[in-house]
Structures are given as structure tokens and as C-alpha cells.
């Protein structure tokens, strides 16, 4: 293949990655923005989503699309409920103190991860995609002075991957509509802007916090359900999404949702492209250093205007 088709393939893989990453990172960003809590256990909520998707598809049986459809609804709900419970039993009692909640969420990370190891085991298990048609993609070449389409060997994607990209966009639009247009979003933005003033106006801030923490975790779980037919469910799978989501949230500006989405697309695409052409470890090292330096020299993020 020429460079062009290769690049298209890398961009498609990157877009799948970006879509999943955007959901995960928006969840993290929402929690940080509204609650000022850095949730180190976010990657474990992602992992729980994938593991629950496996359990649900095993229990439901029938055609793959039925089990997957149920998992798409049930897994985020369960994970969200777990997160709400964690918020009410742990984070609330710490008064959402930034440093103490970090230590507590590190503890939650190990609790969730190790309990999954005990219950689910160390194996990686696949989930069957609901539909998975192979789609060959055309590429163009200039033949006799005119553009002509042809189908290069190896240039293909699957209908499921395109559906993941679509689902990611749909959910992000839903989150945006909720934040910008609904009563619930208005309340969340009020709490984010000034917690004490919101409290003075009678907004039940603690209930909003619990809801935001649950919503953030549910978004991570949803992203994991979407990706699990492509990768696999494993108890250690939360570490990479956590670090990537951190990267995205920091580059996009801590707590800024539009910045987070832009950064997710940027990082998802570049990760897809870089790992096609370069060593993934080197790419990870450079990305990690870049993030740390952004945080030191531009704490508001590359796209943010507000200070964090």
C-alpha cells in the first residue's frame, strides 16, 4: 500500500480510540470540574464497565446483539450506582478535600481492582460484537489523467468500529445538551461556578456531587462497553485509559468540557497514527512528558482560558 491508504487506516483506528477516550475523559473532567476531585479510580470504573459487559452478555444469552444491548444499559447503571455509593460513604465524609480524596480514590482503585481479580479472575475475556461486517474501503489514484477509485488490499474497517465512532459522537452530544440545555445541567454549572453561592440558593450540593460522580463513572463504563468487543475485558485494563484520560483532561484544560473533547480527538488520532509508524512505548514516554510540561508551563491547558 502507499502512504495514503495507510494513513486513512491509522486515522480510522485513531477515531475509534478518540471516541472512547472522549467519553472516558469527559467523565473525568466533569468530576474534576464540578467537584474539584481528582478521581484516580476512574480507570477502574472503566474496567468494571467492561467486566460487567462480559457478565451481562454471558447471562442474557441469545443473539450477540441482545446481550450487548442489555450490557450497554445495565453496565453503566451498575457502575454509576457503585460510584454514588463510594461518593456517599467515602468522599462526602472527607468534605471533598482535594488531597485526601486523592489518597482515598487510590485506595478505591486497589479495592475495585483486587475485588475484580478475586471475583472475575486474571483472564482476559472477549465479548462478541453485535454486528461486525467487514467493509472494504476505496482509495483513489490518478489513471490516464482522471481520478479512479480502487480497493487496495488490506484497507478495510468493520461496521462495528464505525458504530463506535457514531455512538461516541451521539453520547457526547447528549452530554452537551444536558449540560447546556437541561435544568440538571444548569444546577451542575451553578455548583461548578460557586459552590457556596449555589448552597445559599438552596441547591442540594451534596446530591449534585453524588450525581456527578455517578455520571462520570457511568460515562467511563459506557466507553468500556463500547470498546470491549474490540479489545477484551481484563482486571488490569483500567491503567491505560486512566493515564490517557488524565493526558486529555490536562491538555484540554482541567474541568473544561469542550477543551476535553478537542484534546481527546487530537490525542486519539495522534496515538493511532504514531503507534502505526513508531514504537508505542516511545510515543507514551513523549506524551507523558508533554503532559507534565503542559501542566507546569500552561496549567490552564492548551485550549483553556480559565485558570484551573
Amino acid at each position: 500500500m502507499d502512504l495514503g491508504p495507510y494513513l486513512l487506516l491509522a486515522i480510522l483506528e485513531g477515531a475509534v480510540m478518540a471516541s472512547v477516550l472522549a467519553l472516558t475523559a469527559v467523565g473525568l473532567s466533569l468530576v474534576f470540574g464540578v467537584m474539584r476531585v481528582v478521581n484516580i479510580a476512574h480507570g477502574e470504573f472503566f474496567m468494571l464497565g467492561a467486566v460487567l459487559a462480559w457478565y451481562v452478555t454471558q447471562m442474557v444469552g441469545g443473539p450477540p446483539s441482545l446481550g450487548f444491548g442489555v450490557a450497554l444499559v445495565v453496565a453503566p447503571l451498575i457502575v454509576g450506582a457503585i460510584a454514588v455509593a463510594a461518593d456517599m460513604t467515602v468522599l462526602k465524609r472527607l468534605d471533598y478535600d482535594p488531597e485526601r480524596t486523592i489518597v482515598a480514590t487510590i485506595g478505591l482503585l486497589y479495592i475495585i481492582q483486587q475485588l475484580t481479580l478475586m471475583g472475575y479472575g486474571p483472564e482476559a475475556r472477549p465479548v462478541e460484537p453485535p454486528f461486525n461486517t467487514r467493509l472494504a474501503l476505496p482509495w483513489f489514484e490518478v489513471r490516464d489523467g482522471a481520478l479512479a477509485l480502487y480497493w487496495p488490499w488490506g484497507l478495510s474497517t468493520t461496521s462495528y468500529k464505525l458504530a463506535v465512532i457514531g455512538a461516541g459522537i451521539a453520547v457526547l452530544l447528549g452530554v452537551w445538551a444536558m449540560m447546556a440545555r437541561s435544568q440538571m445541567g444548569l444546577v451542575m454549572r451553578a455548583v461548578q461556578a460557586d459552590r457556596d453561592m449555589a448552597l445559599a440558593f438552596g441547591i442540594p450540593v451534596e446530591r449534585v456531587y453524588a450525581m456527578v460522580f455517578g455520571l462520570g463513572a457511568a460515562l467511563a463504563a459506557l466507553a468500556a462497553v463500547l470498546i470491549v468487543p474490540i479489545s477484551q475485558a481484563h482486571y488490569l485494563m483500567g491503567a491505560d485509559p486512566l493515564l490517557l484520560a488524565f493526558t486529555v483532561v490536562i491538555i484540554g484544560g482541567l474541568g473544561s468540557l469542550p477543551g476535553t473533547v478537542v484534546a481527546a480527538i487530537l490525542i486519539g488520532l495522534s496515538d493511532g497514527i504514531i503507534s502505526v509508524f513508531f514504537s508505542p512505548t516511545l510515543a507514551k514516554i513523549l506524551a507523558t512528558l508533554l503532559v507534565a510540561l503542559v501542566l507546569v508551563f500552561r496549567p490552564q491547558g492548551l485550549f483553556g482560558v480559565r485558570s484551573a
Binding site: F246, T281, T288, V291, L295, V296
Partner: peptide
Amino acid sequence: LALRTRGVAFMIVTLMFAQAGYLTILY
């Protein structure tokens, strides 16, 4: 580098550099 930041950012910067160090050892 890291002491230019404070609070939560300090924690993330130290975490990120340590992660980069770990990956460098693997690399």
C-alpha cells in the same frame, strides 16, 4: 519543574514524570 505547580497539579506532574521514568526503563 514540579514545584512551579501546587496542590493537585503537583501530584499529577510527579506521577507523570515517574511514569515516564518507568516507561524509559522498559524502553
